[in-house]
């Protein structure tokens, strides 16, 4: 998957959560900039699972940018596809 698909999906999830589209920059931090709370971050992970089939643990101790979340998505997909090839 390319980064743009992960980013588009992430932005769609955030828009569904009521976050204004204009604040969704790739460098925007989930907690500090978008003011997401713990339940909303869980909802992002559930949305990624539902829409892309990937399991991404979005731990909250270190705030993450949208770009960093997308990297996590790509890494999770890569691990998943490698394990499928291996089996």
């Amino acid at each position: 998957m390319d980064n743009s698909k992960a980013m588009d999906t992430l932005k769609a999830i955030l828009i569904d959560l009521g976050i204004p589209k204009e604040s969704l920059h790739q460098d925007a931090l989930l907690q500090e900039d978008l003011q997401l709370d713990s339940t909303e971050i869980v909802e992002i992970a559930l949305g990624l699972k539902r829409r892309l089939g990937v399991s991404v643990k979005l731990e909250g101790r270190q705030d993450m940018t949208l770009d960093q979340v997308c990297h996590k998505v790509e890494a999770a997909i890569s691990v998943h596809s490698n394990s499928n090839h291996a089996s």
Binding site: Q31, S38, T39, I41, V42, K57, L58, E59, G60, R61
Partner: peptide, 11 residues
């Protein structure tokens, strides 16, 4: 703990 969401708590 400094956990801030369910993933932190599970960890």
């Amino acid at each position: 703990s400094d956990a801030s969401n369910a993933f932190d708590i599970i960890s």
